Simulated scan of single mutants.
Amino acid sequence: MNVFNANLDIINSQLSQRFTSMRETNKLFQAIHPGTLNRAQDNVRHQHAQRLVDHYSRDLSPSFPVQLLAFRACFKTELAKEPSVKDMAKMLILNLIKTYLRSSMGQEGLSGLATLSIENSRARKLDLSSVVNDFAERKARKINF
Rank of each mutant, 00 (worst) to 15 (best):
N133P: 00
Q67V: 06
R72Y: 13
K125L: 06
G112M: 03
I97V: 15
L79I: 09
P34I: 01
H46R: 10
K90M: 10
D134L: 05
L116G: 14
Y56R: 08
F19T: 10
S121L: 10
G35Y: 02
A49E: 04
Y56C: 03
S16D: 07
K98G: 08
L94K: 13
S21I: 13
R51W: 14
I97A: 13
P83I: 00
A49F: 12
P83K: 04
A73F: 14
I32Q: 10
S63K: 05
Q67T: 03
G106V: 11
L52T: 12
S111L: 00
F19Q: 08
M105T: 11
A123W: 04
M88Q: 03
R72H: 13
R72E: 15
S117C: 00
F71T: 03
L37M: 04
Q17K: 15
T115H: 09
T20V: 05
P62I: 13
D59F: 15
I97H: 15
Y56D: 00
S61E: 09
A80S: 14
K90H: 05
A40P: 09
S84Q: 01
S117A: 01
I93V: 12
E24P: 05
E137Q: 12
K81D: 09
R45N: 03
S104P: 07
S63G: 10
G106M: 10
L68V: 04
E137P: 02
K86A: 15
A40E: 01
L52V: 03
L79M: 04
A123K: 00
F64S: 00
T20I: 07
L94P: 08
G112S: 12
R45A: 00
A114E: 05
Q47C: 07
T77K: 15
N133E: 08
D87C: 06
I93D: 06
T99Y: 15
K81W: 05
A80D: 08
N95K: 05
S61P: 07
Q67Y: 07
R58S: 10
G109T: 10
L68F: 02
F19N: 11
F64Q: 01
R58C: 03
K86N: 15
L113M: 05
P34Y: 00
R58E: 03
I97S: 11
L28S: 04
Q67E: 02
Q30H: 11
G35T: 06
P83H: 02
Q47K: 03
L52I: 04
F64K: 01
N120S: 14
H48A: 03
A40R: 02
